[in-house]
């Protein structure tokens, strides 16, 4: 339909963009992961698997990686537990307030990430809102220390931040369910709960998968929440990468860790894509 030149011209900018800002950096990072740093703090361009070997042999890296995945898994679970009922309510029960509620869920996304993370700091701190309140009503005598600078604080903050990301795809998948299917289910004798279990839930699986992928992938790579609220016990893998690329000046090892994370994330995306396909019936 369009001439070859036209198509070439029109596809050039996006292809250039992706190549310049995505592919080239990844290739560079991939190369870096095989290099090493000499004792003189110079990056040596000689290929070896030493970085990957170090990554697998030093327990601190693997431990942190598993802790990050565990935090991400909890964030995913809690985001789904919050996001699904919210999406269900807005989609099916909110009536005329639907648009308003939808906007209210979206608005936090416009607020800076830092502001929201700091907000939790003021809530969870030892003289923060929560501790003051707990002492005021005599639930506790002393400020509760585990609230801030702990994996708990990280999970809480990330759940708050990523719940809209699970809400959106779930809401979209619920909105796509033809309402006459729900009527048909009731018509055939199913109560509201049975209808939810046998019709609504299976048809919203693609949204749940997309939302879970968002929450997991985004929180797995997060470094600000652990930096601000995590404390020593809440360190995540990205914090290590940041320090390796910064103060520690070990770009090759940082690149190797980054590449491992990239592999995990891509694998996960691939897997969830496959599952989503399997669960969509249009």
């Amino acid at each position: 339909m369009f001439s070859r030149t036209y198509r070439a011209v029109i596809t050039l900018p996006p292809v250039t963009w992706v190549a310049m800002f995505l592919l080239v950096p990844y290739i560079l990072m991939f190369c870096y992961s095989f290099w090493s740093v000499s004792s003189l703090q110079v990056i040596v361009h000689s290929c070896s698997l030493a970085n990957y070997r170090e990554l697998l042999s030093k327990s601190v890296y693997l431990q942190t990686l598993f802790r990050s995945m565990w935090i991400a898994a909890r964030v995913t679970l809690f985001s789904l537990l919050l996001g699904y009922p919210l999406a269900y309510y807005v989609s099916f029960q909110s009536g005329k307030r639907k648009d308003l509620l939808y906007q209210l869920v979206i608005i936090p996304l416009w607020v800076s990430y830092l502001v929201r993370a700091y907000a939790w700091k003021t809530v969870l701190g030892s003289d923060g809102v929560l501790n003051t309140l707990l002492q005021y009503i005599h639930v506790s005598q002393h400020p509760l220390g585990f609230l801030l600078y702990s994996p708990f604080a990280v999970v809480l903050t990330l759940t708050h931040i990523y719940t809209p990301f699970t809400f959106l795809p779930i809401y979209a998948s619920l909105e796509r369910i033809p309402r006459n299917l729900i009527e048909a289910s009731h018509d055939l004798g199913a109560s509201s709960w049975q209808t939810f279990r046998t019709v609504i839930l299976p048809l919203s699986v693609p949204g749940v998968l997309a939302g879970a992928t968002f929450a997991f992938v985004l929180s797995l790579g997060d470094f600000l929440a652990p930096l601000l609220l995590g404390g020593p016990s809440g360190i995540m893998i990205s914090n290590i990468v940041v320090s390796l690329f910064g103060a520690a000046y070990n770009w090759p090892l940082g690149a190797a860790i980054s590449f491992c994370m990239l592999a995990i994330v891509v694998g996960l995306l691939f897997f969830s894509e496959r599952l989503e396909k399997k669960w969509s019936f249009r």
């Binding site: 299917l181 009527e183 048909a184 019709v199």
Partner: peptide, 13 residues
């Protein structure tokens, strides 16, 4: 009472 819907409303899954 059962209904045959206008666009059938068969469960796609």
């Amino acid at each position: 009472v059962n209904t045959v819907f206008q666009h059938y409303a068969l469960f796609p899954h």
